[in-house]
Write a protein that binds this DNA or RNA. Structure first.
Length: 553
RNA sequence: GCGCCUGUAGCUCAGCUGGAUAGAGCGCCGGACUUCGAAUCCGUAGGUCGCAGGUUCGAAUCCUGCCAGGCGCGCCA
């Protein structure tokens, strides 16, 4: 049984084809009007066609409506033309309720689809340097990337979640050196701590750990060896901490990809060779340059410095070549917005590697502006002044934290005030949604105490669901699959929380106006059936966000 | 100087890619618990959609120019 929206969509497609056979590349958009006087669904397609057909929109609307009336689909109560040429559809209420049995029978699968057609997508996110604990900004990237992956999976894509570890290079040396210097301090030596070193307390803690294990042993080693030991130790401990934090944040990666492995395998060298063979590399001032301007970048970029060292960008190209060779149909990179200047060159590289630049989608996540009581909190890894993701999770909880991140477009700046998130936690949008779920669970408990079980196999008399609010809820439930789809195709997780809010607000209102459990057995059965459908959609939607659906709060 | 992002109610943000009277939450004010959970509901107030032009039947949405905030612009990573 196709959903009403689908049927209207198809009907309109046919109607448009019928009015004018000259290859119109317009697909009519079906929307839900803001006010109910405008029907359950509406389309502005007649206005969209005016330019092409050079006819009055109302005339076009009339011929579309004529076509529709000739078909006279059984779900349609009436169709009318309004305003400048809107076509408004009024649906019979019993037609709407056909979605309920579908939701009940599909259960946790309701909302999933096959639009992805098994396409293979990689989502690379977080990828924070293992030089310190994750901070709040990484948390936002983690929430967005993970939710996106869940949404894409729900739409029939095969998804791989990957974390790229920058485990080599100058920063790693500085990390090793930072720990080593702290270690020397613990051993009573006076050291000067350079400005570019990591000053966080966690560095001191790591040095202490090494001291507890090794005593003054490292002091006797040549500095280079000792630093290397410190680096290995610190890197491993920090990365383990990152994994732990992410796991607690309900983010699990399928693969942790090491930058160092690209150096070891010679892939970076091979990548540069490949580009050179294709004429995209030239030498200048003793360095090797990638001709990214040939693909729209504003200037060419160095890949091998005059001292012979490859740049970070060179490794990044090799990394993306590696991704491309793994056969992904689409590659999604989620970056902090401070890296926006790298999009053009990365897309240029992908194209130079013989692929399509459209295969790479870069989602920029704006940095989080962390506040406490309205005052900005300093955030600098180097200076060691930052609030870690773990601290935020401990303070406001995983559910609230993820929800706050996911309720905004990723490219909008985000003020995250810890005091507000904490103090107003009972007014936090996530609880509004979770409360509806808990409330429903409670209703079912009461129902079962009264011996009003819920029989999944038996469909009650749904024509009893005639209240405006019931129709509205049913209609919204029917929208869920489209919301998930649009969220996937636009790569915008925030559509889910906004949908949830609409649905839940409608449900709470309904709950306050009508009793689900009453003396009328048939009506109770029908309403419990509706309630169960709501509960399923709430669970499924929250699950896409990685937010829990508690039975009690 | 150049580039990217943002500018919508007092605050935090949506606005389905050009459609009908621009919407939520928080906050303010006023109501609703002897009845399935009041973390809820119902109602009031609050707007020159940063500014100015342009495109057309129609603009918060598209194009141009300004203004403001954030972030980038290295043979750093």
């Amino acid at each position: 049984m196709a959903l009403i929206r689908n049927q209207i969509q198809e009907l309109l497609n046919d109607a448009v084809k019928c009015i004018d056979s000259t290859n119109l590349d317009i697909t009519p958009e079906v929307e839900i009007p803001a006010v109910k006087e405008h029907g359950h669904y509406a389309t502005a397609v007649a206005m969209a066609l005016t330019k092409k057909l050079r006819k009055n929109p109302r005339l076009i609307a009339e011929s579309i409506v004529n076509y529709i009336e000739k078909q006279s689909p059984d779900y349609l109560q009436k169709v009318e033309i309004a305003g400048p040429g809107f076509i408004n559809f009024f649906i019979k209420s019993e037609a709407f309720s056909t979605v309920l049995p579908e939701i009940i029978s599909k259960g946790s699968l309701y909302g999933t689809s096959e639009i992805g057609g098994g396409q293979y997508i990689q989502v690379e996110f977080v990828s924070a340097n293992p030089t310190g604990p994750l901070h709040i900004g990484h948390g936002r990237g983690a929430a967005v990337g993970d939710a996106l992956a869940r949404i894409l999976e729900a739409c029939g894509y095969r998804v791989q979640r990957e974390y790229y570890i920058n485990d080599t290079g100058k920063q790693m040396e500085i990390l090793g050196s930072s720990v080593y210097l702290r270690y020397l301090e613990i051993n009573g030596e006076k050291v000067t701590f350079p400005d570019d070193h990591y000053k966080g307390d966690y560095i001191v803690d790591l040095a202490k750990e090494i001291f507890d294990e090794k005593g003054d042993e490292l002091k006797k080693l040549p500095a280079g060896e000792a630093i290397s030991y410190c680096y290995e130790y610190a890197y491993k401990r920090i990365l383990d901490g990152i994994k732990e934090d992410l796991s607690q944040f309900r983010v699990e990666f399928d693969r942790w990809f090491s930058e160092k492995s690209l150096h070891r395998s010679g892939e970076i060298k091979k990548t540069i060779e490949f580009l050179k063979d294709n004429g995209y590399i030239y030498e200048s001032e003793g360095a090797l340059w990638f001709k990214s301007t040939a693909f729209g970048d504003e200037k060419d970029r160095v890949v091998v410095r005059s001292n012979g060292a490859t740049t970070y960008f060179a490794a990044d190209i090799a990394y993306h070549w590696n991704k491309l060779k793994r056969g992904f149909d689409t590659i999604i990179d989620i970056w902090g917005a401070d890296h926006h200047g790298y999009v053009a060159r990365m897309k240029a590289a992908v194209e130079a590697l013989g692929s399509s630049r459209d295969k790479l989608h870069v989602i920029l996540v704006q940095l989080v502006n962390l506040l406490r009581g309205g005052r900005p909190v300093a955030m600098s890894t180097r200076a060691g002044e930052f609030v870690t993701l773990r601290e935020v999770i401990d303070e406001v909880g995983v559910d609230a934290c993820r929800y706050i991140f996911l309720t905004r477009r990723s490219d909008s700046h985000l003020d995250f005030d810890l005091e507000v998130a904490k103090e107003q936690s009972s007014n936090n949008p996530v609880y509004y949604v979770q409360y509806a779920h808990a409330r429903l669970c409670s209703v079912f408990e009461v129902a079962s105490e009264k011996g009003l079980g819920f029989d999944k196999g038996k469909t009650p008399n749904l024509s009893l669901l005639t209240q405006d609010k019931e129709i509205k809820i049913i209609q919204l439930l029917g929208e869920f699959p489209y919301v998930v789809e649009s969220s996937a195709t636009h790569l915008e997780p925030h559509r889910i929380p906004y949908y949830l809010h609409d649905l839940v607000s409608e449900f709470h209102s309904y709950y306050n106006h009508h009793r689900i459990i009453s003396d009328d057995q048939d009506l109770t059965a029908a309403r419990l059936y509706l309630a169960e459908a709501v509960r399923i959609v709430l669970r499924n939607a929250l699950n896409l966000l990685g937010v829990s659906a508690p039975e009690k709060m």
